[in-house]
Each structure stands twice: as structure tokens, then as C-alpha cells.
Amino acid sequence: MHTDEQIITLFKEAVKEVDTGTKVGDVTMATELSSLGLDSVMTMEVIGVMEEKLNIRFPDEDLATIKRMGDLAGLVRKLS
């Protein structure tokens, strides 16, 4: 089971891997992913990196429901 902190750390690592130039500031479970300044392609790349690190696959239809960090964390827990 992953804690909130672990998932946030993983997310930040994934952002760094996708684009070293993007700085993600404070993130909590309430943070909307769209507020982090990632464009749609980068967001999907970040999702892809997280899938590989966690060895899971987010179903396409579930991705559309992710708005906040908490939604992403919930999905990670459901799938891993």
C-alpha cells in the first residue's frame, strides 16, 4: 500500500523524468493536476512513467476522471 507522500514523491519524480525544466511546487491530495502547468502530452507522459514504475496500467476511461492528486492516488491504490 502506498502512502499519500509516497505517491506524491513518485509523481514528482515522474515529472522530473519527463521534463527536467518543470518545477512542481507544493502538492497535496487536494491539488488539481491542471494547476501544475503540465500540458496534455506531458501529463500523459507522467502517467506513463508512473505506470512503468508501479507496474500497473491505468484504464483509459479512468484517466478521464482524474482531476486532483487524490483521484490519482485513489486509482494507484485500487490498481496496485
Binding site: 496534455s40 483509459d60 484517466l63
Partner: peptide
């Protein structure tokens, strides 16, 4: 199609 995490 609607983009994932898109603005519906």
C-alpha cells in the same frame, strides 16, 4: 475523442 484528464 475526449482527451484523458481533458476539459469535458
Amino acid at each position: 475523442p475526449p482527451l484523458a484528464l481533458g476539459k469535458l
